[in-house]
Design a protein around this nucleic acid. Structure first.
Length: 864
DNA sequence: GCGGATCAC
DNA sequence: TATGGTGATCCGC
């Protein structure tokens, strides 16, 4: 092992030598790499950047730390050291007594997991350098790419410099999760209690299997790896077998890829192995610790940790020193640990740095929304909120508050997060994150499999929001109903209001039970409550609450309860959504609330329809006849709609009725949906996942498929410009169109520039089966771009309103576009984008090939 | 309890 | 043009 060339010598003619990044460290598959060249390229691409400057700042801090450590080291007297040596000797005896060589642990680590999965689903990638990720960050690189020095955590634009032919494949977590599940099925056969590290690694206690089957750890490892290979259809993994987890993990790295290493369970073998092992190989010892130990204490190998134990105990905390010492002795965990519950949940996003307060508040709102959503999905409530910021200069800051009560509502989170953020302004920020910790343990232990649907509706589906003391509870609902221009202006207005309120939010403490807890207590008895019934309950809880709240309550709409009849059919409109479609169901119930709000807006008389007096709906309700209402009877909803709506992507791809695109992709119309029960939860059907490469949908595939949808598609071109129009095949009237241009972009070849995608009012009120019209129009445009040789498609998600915008961005992200930058007009660099696009918004890109692959199922299936 | 850091994947 | 997101833990206040 030839690493560890600590370049503390600063050679001014070779400045890159002192720019140590994580990429400096050796990694499997990086053996024949021209390290100097990689180092130089990374340096050249980085130097001068804000990121680089921050790295230098961090580097300086580390040096300082090391100096400080050296000073303290020098001040130690020999009597100090001999005292500490006594501590060490005693600790060694204690710890040695706990050594357990009776267990056999196996660590499995999938080889270049994401990249391998992508190659499996698209074998044409085989043998070519490829990276999973984008130009800003790479998640995994395959071994061909590693030969060029490309590796995980490296920014894509640097990787492309190192390897100009590098193929980028966007990350696709559902796909990796699918394959991860396949591997875990195998693991379970060897240790039902195996510990899953991440998607691509696991620890197994194979002691029992070895004993029962009379096989060695190495034999079991061989068998397991071969089983993983066949069960996944070709993925390889590496394994390490040793007496404890720490050693097993080190071992699995030794013969990577597609190899294994067994460390015999006897003390002297372990000691020999560990004593020469570089400390950086140990999990938990990273770049900084390595440097401190190496540069200040001259500890390079694990063996050194024992030899210099007295220094460690003198300079570090007891727990750190204990850890180092046990590492030096080759000790590690051998027990199967308790079930570990999560301790925090967070959401964070990076964007083009901005100091625009309004923009920052809207980002914050988005993140609060995402976090709240995730918490509700996991049924978590927490009381400590931490705001994380990364400034334009890459400095990380965090600010936390502990609340008086547990919460998971986006309003609560946003309210407090806004206070925290406000205190930091003005500052230019490139990342905002929110984390919630200190969970309500009682809530955590409830069985989430019980009454999921009704709990979900009560808690998340609109009525819960009405319980919140925040009087802008119509905000979320309006956000979910973007049915027409009027709704757009409504959401904009309500957002503005809440923004102003948030800015001047005053600290006050709520003592009442949280909605979440309330729900939990009552959920056995109350399955669905009407909005007004819930509100009344809420008022009861807060009999002493202020009058304003009562007033806020009075403007809230009365809700017809939403029930999933027979477990899957909406009693309000008849649309069918299986229980597993959690997100879609949420959208759907929000849609109904929004619709109701809309009706309220249109006039109090129409809204005063007598609501059902049913307060409690038992399961029997499912058998009573549902109040049917055709989903397309939304005349109220389209009132005031302009004849052509600009870029209503949600509707265009079929979200109008509350269905997410994922469902559109999987089942393009309600008829197919009915057959798809239970539906696949992944984008990727099992049959397609292991098979050979899917051919891309050709233009004629798309056109043929659209004909079956009663859609007449046409593409016109004029030079680089193109226009896709979709007409109703019966009436001949236009239902939607997309326009754009094929043009070069920064020397990166041609890009498909999507300018506008419009759907007509007619489209939106037409039969549901035509809701996929936007998908077809979009697909023709994308295929056209592909045929013209474009690799990338670009669009600008316009800031029509902040709430609408975030929805739009999220939507495009779902279908495969990636945020590239915010075009705000605040920097001169935005001018080009603004001129090209004629507005401000979020520039988003997608890999055209990937889009076609992703959509291929839709079009090819309809043909066959 | 908070804030900064480190680490892993 | 451009350097991620999530979760855990530790240390020093």
């Amino acid at each position: 092992m030839d690493e560890g060339e600590s370049s503390s010598t600063n050679n001014p003619s070779r400045p890159w030598e002192s720019y140590n990044t994580v990429f400096t460290n050796a990694k499997a598959g990086m053996e024949g790499v021209d390290k100097e060249k990689v180092q130089r390229v990374v340096y050249e691409m980085s130097k001068g950047s804000k990121y680089f400057q921050n790295e230098e700042r961090k580097e300086a801090l580390m040096k300082q730390k090391i100096e400080h450590m050296r000073d303290r080291c020098a001040k130690l007297s020999s009597s100090d050291l001999s005292n500490y040596q006594k501590v060490v000797d005693r600790r060694i005896l204690e710890v040695e007594a706990t050594r357990d060589l009776s267990r056999v642990w196996l660590h499995v680590d999938m080889d270049a997991f994401y990249a391998a999965v992508e190659t499996l689903s698209n074998p044409s990638l085989k043998g070519k350098p490829m990276a999973v990720g984008g130009l800003s960050m790479i998640s995994t690189a395959n071994y061909e790419a590693r030969k060029f020095g490309v590796r995980a955590a490296m920014p894509g634009f640097i990787a492309r410099k190192l390897c100009p032919d590098l193929i980028f494949v966007p990350v696709d977590f559902p796909k990796y999760t699918h394959y991860s599940d396949l591997t875990r099925k195998v693991f379970k056969n060897y240790d039902p209690n195996f510990i899953a590290g991440s998607l691509d690694e696991a620890y197994l206690d194979i002691t029992e299997v070895c004993r029962e089957r009379g096989l060695s750890g190495g034999e079991i490892a061989e068998e397991l790896r071969s089983s993983v290979h066949s069960e996944t259809g070709g993925l390889t993994c590496s394994a390490g077998v040793a007496a404890n987890r720490l050693l097993a993990k080190v071992c699995s790295d030794i013969n990577k890829p597609n190899g294994q290493f067994v460390l015999q369970n006897d003390r002297s073998t372990v000691m020999t192995f560990i004593s020469s092992l570089p400390i950086r190989k140990i999990g938990g010892i990273g770049k900084v610790t390595e440097h401190i130990l190496k540069d200040a204490l001259e500890i390079k190998t694990c063996g050194d940790m024992v030899l210099k134990g007295s220094l460690l105990y003198a300079l570090f905390t007891q727990s750190s020193a204990d850890f180092f010492l046990s590492v030096g002795l080759g000790l590690g965990k051998t027990d199967t640990p308790e079930v570990r519950s999560r301790k925090s949940i967070s959401s964070e996003r990076t964007f083009a740095a901005t100091g625009d307060e309004k923009l920052l508040y809207s980002k914050l709102a988005e993140i609060a929304e995402m976090l709240s959503h995730d918490m509700q999905k996991e049924r978590l409530a927490a009381r400590t909120l931490t705001l994380k910021l990364k400034t334009a200069s890459f400095e990380i800051r965090s600010r936390a508050v502990s609340l008086q009560r547990y919460t998971c509502s986006s309003e609560d989170i946003l309210k407090h997060a806004t206070k925290l953020l406000k205190a930091e302004l003005p500052v230019s920020i490139r990342l905002i994150g929110l984390r919630m910790s200190q969970f309500n343990e009682e809530a955590r232990h409830s069985d989430p499999s019980q009454g999921t649907i009704t709990k979900f509706i009560v808690q998340k589906g609109s009525s819960r929001k009405n319980l919140d003391d925040n009087d802008s509870s119509d905000l979320d609902a309006s956000k979910n109903c973007l049915g027409n221009d009027e709704m757009l202006s409504l959401s904009y207005a309500s957002h503005e209001t809440s923004y102003d309120q948030l800015k001047d939010v005053v600290e006050y403490e709520e003592q009442s039970v949280t909605p979440n807890q309330e729900c939990k207590k009552k959920e056995e008895r109350i399955q669905v409550l009407e909005g007004d019934a819930l509100l009344r309950k809420h008022k009861d809880c807060k009999a002493d609450s202020s009058a304003e709240k009562t007033e806020a309550v009075s403007v809230l709409p009365q809700m017809e309860p939403l029930v999933w009849v027979d477990g899957y059919r909406c009693n309000l409109c008849g649309i069918e959504l299986p229980p597993s479609f959690v997100e879609e169901r949420q959208e759907h119930s929000d849609f109904h609330l929004a619709q109701r709000l809309q009706n309220e807006e249109s006039g109090p008389s129409s809204s005063n329809t007598p609501t059902s007096k049913r307060r409690i709906l038992g399961k029997e309700k499912a058998n009573s006849k549902p109040k049917k209402q055709k989903p397309n009877q939304k005349d109220d909803n389209v009132r005031g709609l302009h004849s052509v709506v600009k870029l209503l992507a949600l509707e265009m791809f079929g979200s109008l009725g509350g269905c997410h695109l994922s469902s559109v992709l999987e089942r393009r119309n309600p008829e197919e949906m009915k057959m798809a029960l239970p539906p696949p939860r992944l984008n990727l059907s099992p049959s397609s996942s292991l098979g050979e490469p899917r051919s891309l949908p050709s233009m004629s595939d798309i056109l043929t498929s659209s004909k079956a949808r009663n859609l007449d598609l046409k593409i016109q071109t004029l030079g680089p410009f193109f226009r896709v129009t979709g007409k109703n095949a019966d009436t001949g009237s236009e239902v939607g169109r997309a326009e754009g241009v094929v043009r070069p972009w920064f020397g990166r070849g041609l890009v498909l520039h999507l300018d506008t995608i419009r759907l007509t009012k007619e489209t939106m009120v037409m039969d549901k089966s035509l809701l996929g019209v936007g998908l077809y129009v979009g697909a023709v445009a994308i295929r056209h771009g592909y045929d013209c040789g474009c690799r990338t498609a670009q669009l600008l998600a316009i800031y029509d309103s902040d709430l609408y915008h975030s929805k739009l961005v999220r939507f495009y992200r779902r279908i495969g576009f990636e945020e590239v930058k915010e075009v705000s007009g605040s920097s001169i660099g935005d001018m080009a984008d603004m001129l090209v696009w004629g507005g401000v918004g979020t520039r988003m890109d997608a890999n055209i090939h990937h889009l076609l692959v992703k959509w291929s199922k839709v079009f090819l299936k309809s043909v066959s």
